[in-house]
Nucleic acid binder design. Structure first.
Ligand SMILES: [Mn+2]
Ligand SMILES: [Mn+2]
Ligand SMILES: [Mn+2]
Ligand SMILES: [Mn+2]
Lengths: 218, 218
DNA sequence: TAAAAAGTTTAGCCTTGGCTAAAATAAATA
DNA sequence: TATTTATTTTAGCCAAGGCTAAACTTTTTA
């Protein structure tokens, strides 16, 4: 069995990857000192889960990737399960799942997936990897790079930033919301959008974290 | 925040207590070597959670007891929640809760309790401590010490022994089941009981783990 | 009540996963 | 290109929580 720390490192490397993950970025993502990340990368390399080239960067081996995706699957299933049963707000889900994901047996994972009807997206719109790590190829684009004057459908919102998520929630921006971009500030990238008849200003920091699709659903 | 190990030790001491908990029993309960238990008892004593008298035994301080009861509450809420939402078998619940109990925030604990309508018993019939550690005084008696020829109602079955639990389940012995004892073997304490018209033989090892009440429900 | 057995603690060791400070390397800048 | 700066790694330390073997108490038994 992998420890909580090992699972968190693998998941973070996956989230920051696919390759040349910088020690500093990894350390920051996990709230540890860079030296701690280096040491763990060495341990994970010794275990065959990571390939780390000193001073260059780290990436997951196939085995490491499989384990990372298993954590991601548990995380997203849990978010979906908690949202569905307990009506937790989208911004509370992540932190709970972050801890519960390490305490889920294969049996319970299966039971939850079955209960939910094997969902393919979590409440933030993130794809849920299959039991063997399968992920659909992602075709949506960033809101910050989307065309103006065209119907867009929100496909993904971030999950790690409760403040941003709360703001998005207040402005009714979440998966399946429709909107249309009216203008883009050429200086700072800020957007003006039309959403349910209302006009909303969207900062570029936000627009960089939100994904949209042009098609209906996906 | 208390570690998983600390929470498990506190809960085990509570389960084996209330006082003079033997090092060996504790170690066995937690599947660690006696020397490991001694060391942890010393750490917990230094933290004011346990009072340990060398060569005599250990007990929880009021603060330690509060923390132990908080773990027990989370454990039993989780068992109830999993049973209700996912229809897990009574014998699968314990092991899952054993790990999840350490990953539950106060918020999620509240949400689950509210969702369940603040239950006072878990699926094994064990009382669920209140948010401040309150527990009703337990008035039921052991099946092994119950009178013959009288209507009895199962109030508690064990949760840590999947085999025994599976046997009980097969024989329809679980909370709220009615039964009547017909005879007790004076040599080994084995029981013959009448249950839903059927006659069942109950070993004394089982009868020692099952609680009953004479009143309806409780 | 002395010896043996059982239970407990101590001593010493190990791994994991943190940290800081210093050294090494790579990247950026003058 | 030489130097400064940023990034990364190494070295050395620490606490938690395991373990085994040895020492010490307490309890049981002869
Ligand atoms: Mn996590
Ligand atoms: Mn998510
Ligand atoms: Mn536990
Ligand atoms: Mn229970």
């Amino acid at each position: 069995m992998d420890s909580v720390a090992v699972e968190n490192y693998l998941k973070s490397i996956w989230e920051l990857g696919p390759d040349d993950v910088a020690t500093q970025d990894l350390a920051q993502h996990l709230n540890v000192a860079p030296a701690s990340a280096t040491k763990m990368l060495q341990r994970l390399t010794a275990r065959g889960l990571v390939s780390h080239i000193p001073y260059k960067g780290a990436s997951l081996t196939p085995e490491g990737q499989l384990k990372a995706l298993s954590v991601v699957r548990r995380h997203r299933l849990l978010e979906t399960f908690l949202a569905q049963t307990l009506n937790l707000g989208r911004e509370q889900l992540h932190d709970e799942a972050e801890r519960l994901e390490h305490a889920l047996s294969a049996d319970l994972e299966d039971a939850i997936a079955t209960y939910l009807g094997n969902p393919t997206k979590d409440p933030h719109g993130h794809p849920i990897p299959g039991p063997d790590g399968q992920l659909p190829t992602d075709t949506d684009l960033l809101l910050s790079e989307s065309p103006l004057n065209q119907r867009l459908i929100i496909s993904q919102v971030p999950d790690r930033n409760p403040e941003m998520l709360a703001w998005l929630e207040r402005n009714e921006i979440f998966p399946d919301t429709q909107l249309e971009l009216i203008s883009r500030d050429s200086f700072d990238g800020g957007l003006t959008a039309n959403l349910n008849g209302k006009t909303v200003q969207i900062a570029s920091s936000v627009a960089n974290e939100v994904h949209v699709s042009l098609e209906d659903d996906s």
